[in-house]
Design a protein around this nucleic acid. Structure first.
Length: 114
DNA sequence: CAAGTGACTAGTG
DNA sequence: CCACTAGCCACTT
């Protein structure tokens, strides 16, 4: 089944991120693990970086944070934009640049189990 | 083709 | 949780 591997990886990330429910957040590792790559959480972030260049307004990349809930991606997204969007969706912050993962963590696998 | 870079994670102290 | 190290994969040069 390894018909495709790299190029489609981007679209898979787009699919998962696009399915993140409003008011929920997920982590790079969760997406990577769901896609079957596991250790390549960095590549997930790189895919989102490309998404900004290709379909920025279409993809809620602001709902994707690192394992600590920190808005690491805001650097490329817009320093104040990411936090503003999350707060507007009802996300709670434990710190200036950190969301409450304990309250809003969403697993991509939940989309399939339910 | 080799080396460098990066929106990460897990392990150790 | 902080600081440092190693591993990971895809992209760029």
């Amino acid at each position: 089944m390894s018909t495709q591997k790299n190029t489609d990886f981007f679209e898979r990330v787009y699919e998962v991120v696009a399915k993140i429910p409003l008011g929920k957040v997920t982590t790079y590792g969760a997406i990577a693990n769901f896609l079957g790559v596991g250790g390549s959480a960095r590549t997930v972030g790189w895919a989102l970086n490309s998404s900004i260049m290709t379909q920025q307004p279409t993809l809620p990349c602001h709902r994707v944070v690192n394992r600590l809930g920190q808005l690491t991606g805001k650097i490329h997204f817009g320093l104040g934009v990411m936090e503003h969007l999350l707060r507007a969706e009802g996300i709670q912050f434990t710190a200036d640049d950190t969301v409450d993962l304990n309250a809003h963590f969403w697993n991509p696998a939940d989309q399939l189990e339910k």
